[in-house]
């Protein structure tokens, strides 16, 4: 893995001529978790997909660049709300999918270490349909880690999980992705308050930064400052930031 760079998204986007977001600048700090918080439909997924080099319905004018000047799209790993596990492949095969798709030999020792780290060793040979939602997201996280990319893009990966599993996954992901430049797109103020080392609220009016709590992430769910931040974020969302 190359060292994680800063990432800068600068530009505007429109869909069928209508503005999706006015000119904005989003900076993702090197090796940091940046949480992009916003209601649904404001364009969070669009921003994330633009960074990943994936198709969006929007026309983007501007630039997306890394502080080290290296290309971005080939250094990202991507994880979405849908775990995107291949239903016909086993847990182990899903985790090493990237290598197979590139025609490389997967590093099996590394794969097994990651599977163990995600506490999936008993499920190695199972198909995704035999796993719970939380287990499936752990497989998806292992697959993301297997890619070993300096930039990691997470599009509401935990939002379909129940509260307890979600908190567990947040802890696991925060620990596992340490040192990478992470963009977490979420609509959940609590999640942003727990995980963000930098927090930005996105509304129709643009981006508004918000100070993260002082405690290191992942913060305790009952940490007072974290709860206060969660409240402040929700208020910003409701008031449309501005």
């Amino acid at each position: 893995m190359t060292p994680a760079p800063d990432l800068i998204v600068k530009g505007k986007a429109s869909i069928d001529g209508a503005t999706l977001f006015a000119p904005l600048t989003l900076t993702l700090g090197a090796g940091q978790w940046t949480c992009l918080l916003g209601g649904s439909g404001v364009g969070k997924t669009t921003v994330l997909r633009l960074i990943a080099g994936l198709n969006t319905g929007a026309v983007f004018t501007g630039e997306i660049m890394a502080s080290d000047g290296q290309p971005v799209t080939e250094r990202v790993a991507y994880m979405a709300q849908d775990d995107l596990l291949l239903p016909w492949a086993t847990v182990a095969q899903n985790v090493s999918l990237g290598a197979r798709l590139r025609g490389e030999k997967p590093d099996l020792a590394r794969r097994d270490r990651l599977i163990e780290r995600m506490r999936l060793q008993e499920h190695l040979g199972k198909k995704p349909s035999e796993l719970s939602g939380g287990q499936r997201q752990r497989v998806a996280l292992a697959r993301t880690l297997m890619e070993d990319r300096p930039i990691v893009l997470l599009d509401e990966p935990f939002s379909a999980l129940d509260a307890r599993t979600r908190a567990d996954m947040q802890d696991l992901a925060a620990e596992a992705l340490q040192g990478r430049t992470v963009l977490l797109v979420t609509h959940d103020p609590g999640e942003a308050a727990r995980l963000g080392q930098s927090i930005t609220v996105m509304t129709q009016h643009g981006l508004t930064p918000c100070n993260p709590p002082h405690a290191p992430a992942p913060r305790h769910v009952d940490d007072l400052e974290t709860l206060a931040t969660q409240g402040a974020l929700l208020r910003m969302l409701r008031e449309g930031a501005a």
Binding site: G53, T73, E74, V76, Y78, L84, L97, L101, R102, G103
Partner: peptide, 21 residues
Amino acid sequence: SGYLDLARTMQASPRAVLWHI
């Protein structure tokens, strides 16, 4: 389309996408 997106971020070749996905 989610599978194709994932494959794309993994720099899969069209051939590999056809065969594996």
